[in-house]
Amino acid sequence: MSPATPLGAPDPEKDVVALLIQQHGEIRNLFDEVEKTKGDDRRDAFHRLVRMLAVHETAEEQIVHPVARKAAEGGEQVVADRLEEERKAKEALSRLESMDVEDSAFLPALVELRMDVMKHARAEERYEFTHLRRMNDPKKLANMAKALKAAEAAAPTHPHPGTETAARNAVAGPFASIMDRVRDAVRDARGKSR
């Protein structure tokens, strides 16, 4: 018999693609939670969703897209398409952030955002992550997973701004402020490793 294909699903700790797919699942779980809860529970679930989206999208922007751009011919365009989807989702999100979770327009807007986010996630899995896999470089995927984890750890746990970002946050909303903080953290981590 020929040697078997290596067993098992890739480990999210050591493989950035597995980690990102796992996060796509977690994001959908959070959408479920926001839809099913009410009042303060919904507010809390929505804050966790906003944080998760901000961290996930920033980490992709800082860690995944740059590699995907160079991973294959056409990578630049693949990433440009993803950024356009992200832009659309961010718009939908900022509309939601200006609303109270009890607002009658909240759920319909959330369902719309959910669909945008799902389309984006599925497109990443199908058209972007496949390029990362084709690089056939497990070490690189492991390093990217590590960087993504580090960025996540550096992100503020609550979307409430510290004093230094209060002014900017008031304009851009907690989502944007978390993205800024994660960007800074990724840059810091890179600076230190150099």
């Binding site: 699903a9 797919i21 996060q23 796509h24 699942g25 977690e26 959908r28 779980n29």
Partner: peptide
Amino acid sequence: NLYELIEHRKAES
């Protein structure tokens, strides 16, 4: 079980 392993979602969804 494969679904939870890969996509981290539960089939009950």
